[in-house]
Design a protein around this nucleic acid. Sequence first.
RNA 1: GCUCCCAUCGUCUAGAGGCCUAGGACACAGCCCUCUCAAGGCUGGUACGAGGGUUCGAAUCCCUCUGGGAGCGCCA
Length: 465
Amino acid sequence: MTVRTRFAPSPTGLLHIGGVRTALFCWLYARRHGGVFILRIEDTDRERSTPEAVQVILDGMEWLGLHADEGPFYQSERYPRYREVIRQWLAAGKAYHCYCSKAELEQMRNDQLARKEKPRYDGRCRTRQEPIEGVTPVVRFKNPTEGAVVVADAVHGNVVFQNTELDDLIIERSDGNPTYNFCVVVDDYDMKITHVIRGDDHLNNTPRQINMLRAMGVEPPVYAHLPMILGPDGTKLSKRHGAVSVLYYREEGYMPEALLNYLARLGWSHGDQEIFTIEEMRELFDIGDVNKSASAINPDKLAWISQQQMMRLPPARIAVELRWQLKRLGVDIAQGPALEAVVEAQRERSKTLKEMAQASRFFFEAPRNYEEKSARKHLGAEARPLMQQSRTALASLTEWTAPAIHEAIQALAEGGGVGLGKVAQPLRVAVSGGGVSPPIDQTLAILGREQTLARLDRAIAYASR
RNA sequence: GCUCCCAUCGUCUAGAGGCCUAGGACACAGCCCUCUCAAGGCUGGUACGAGGGUUCGAAUCCCUCUGGGAGCGCCA
């Protein structure tokens, strides 16, 4: 049987980290088993669902590379199908009209709470024969009143719920719209979902869904309820933490590969391995290796994984995102060096692409001014002679390559009886404006002779003030 | 309140009765390497929530407690 998983976000908020992790596991599981990954937009809440939120989901999934094999399907387009099922259930006595008023329901609830009971509908309309004049009823599902439902969960094992704990849930509102739990059941049934992988906040909904699935005449799929993801402080994810759009992570300079790698390691592990390529995850992921407890996001570790990923990914791949970042900074890269070369030079000293872009500006535009501390330390009058020697040596190099540049600088240092730093640091400040850059030979090689000499001249002038 | 879930370093985790005086990773500290910043290498500290069982033996199995979380909507 072909594995079929689905990611079913509701477009009422942002697609955040938690949603992405769920999507990732669904996608990974389908990929691992040669199955089908389906995207379904759960937009039955017409008040709160927005086209913008749908777009954020679509854009986010696209950026992450989590492509759906089927869909996106929209629940809002499936209303005729939901009505059909409700008609059938009504006719078959599996569902019934309920005429209870909100006040009546409220009263029932308060009474139960007062008796320290779990609030639930008592099924009083189950036996009603006549409609009530002037009241538009809702439709409720007739949940079994005895026995137990066993959720066979791939991460939690068997979880047992007594039917007496459940009640007859509303499946069609008085305005005629179907409700969430019901739509999920019809969709999972119609879409032949074999594995429902979702957050464990849905574990409590599962027995009702199983009961409805059985009313449709099928046995439930395999469930896998994933542990929650918490904020860095261990509390529920909120806007304060990472409950922002995934695209925020793009802005912050993370590669999709890094974010996915980090998220995969939240609740899942494969021995001691920390760094995974997408391909490795696809080969190694298994739902049985997912753990049960919630985990807190750790920004430091995300940053570390980001750097590790950048050190391994093909430069051309990284260049795509670096280009995007530089553009955001307003840097014109038309005249500068190849981005791949910049990536190779910067990758191991950047945690994010945002940092890399900042640190790489000087490759494309000459520094407007020198960082004060560095200038004071390395561009003083005493540095002038060596800078001038450097200029002469560099100008006369026959070939402009990192090894040749290195050799020239080394010779200068030895000739002057000083350390390499005495030669390199003034050069670094001259070309980059600050005291930090990739190795000086590599930096100058990438920058090119013309730019190097021009910037060096300016620095010599500065040191001569 | 009721039902359900969860519980190993600060954090992410390994661990499916003896291999555990509990391993790895992030972060932190020190050292090495070194033209800066990094990367890399080495070293160090810190954890099985508590109490009862079961067993020759428990981080691992059972029970209770404690702590955290979720659900209980004409929200999803």
